[in-house]
């Protein structure tokens, strides 16, 4: 809780520094998600209050953009690129392999909170297709076999 207060203070500080108005909502949400890793109701209400805008507007914006999440994510976020270049090189099979192996669907988090499986569209590393990112680290030329290797790398931790 104490920790949360600090995070809210940090967010508040940011809002003040950039003199945020309603037009900076998206920038503020980005910062909030950066600080808190997700955007639960309290955060959205906090932002609405600070920017003096209706919370319904904040909610409308948060739910519109796929980058924002209201769910707490796992420790490791596995992103399988489903951009065209990756798709034509079999990214859907990679996704399936992760789903089978982790027992969760795309967009879900494992019950132990360790892995979140999600997809994204094109990271621009089409030369390495299909591409998987784990917390920003990129694995190129993924195969069913590398799925296992990738998971092993993080499961131990």
């Amino acid at each position: 809780m104490e920790n949360d207060k600090k995070k809210f203070d940090e967010l508040d500080e940011y809002i003040k520094t950039i003199h945020a108005t309603e037009h900076e909502l998206i920038a503020v949400l980005h910062r909030a998600q950066h600080i808190l890793s997700y955007l639960p109701r309290e955060v959205q209400e906090f932002i609405a209050d600070r920017l003096q805008i209706p919370v319904s507007k904040v909610y409308g914006v948060v739910t519109f953009y796929s980058f924002f999440t209201m769910e707490k994510k796992g420790k490791y976020v596995i992103n399988v690129c489903l951009g065209t270049a990756c798709f034509v090189r079999g990214a859907d099979k990679i996704m399936k392999a992760f789903e089978d192996r982790l027992g969760i669907k795309n967009g879900e988090t494992t019950p132990d909170g360790k892995f979140t499986l999600s997809s994204l569209r094109c990271v621009g590393a089409c030369g390495l297709a299909p591409v998987v990112q784990v917390n920003g680290k990129t694995y190129g030329n993924a195969t069913i076999e590398t799925v296992e290797q990738i998971l092993k790398e993080y499961e131990g931790e």
Binding site: H23, E24, I26, V61, Y65, F67
Partner: peptide, 25 residues
């Protein structure tokens, strides 16, 4: 100004809505 994951924001009027801090419609 940052996008937040919405392909439709490549459309200029949606992009403008988004810069203004709204849903990118």
């Amino acid at each position: 100004k940052y996008g937040a994951g919405a392909f439709v924001c490549g459309e200029e009027t949606a992009l403008i809505s988004s810069i203004e801090g709204n849903r990118g419609e």
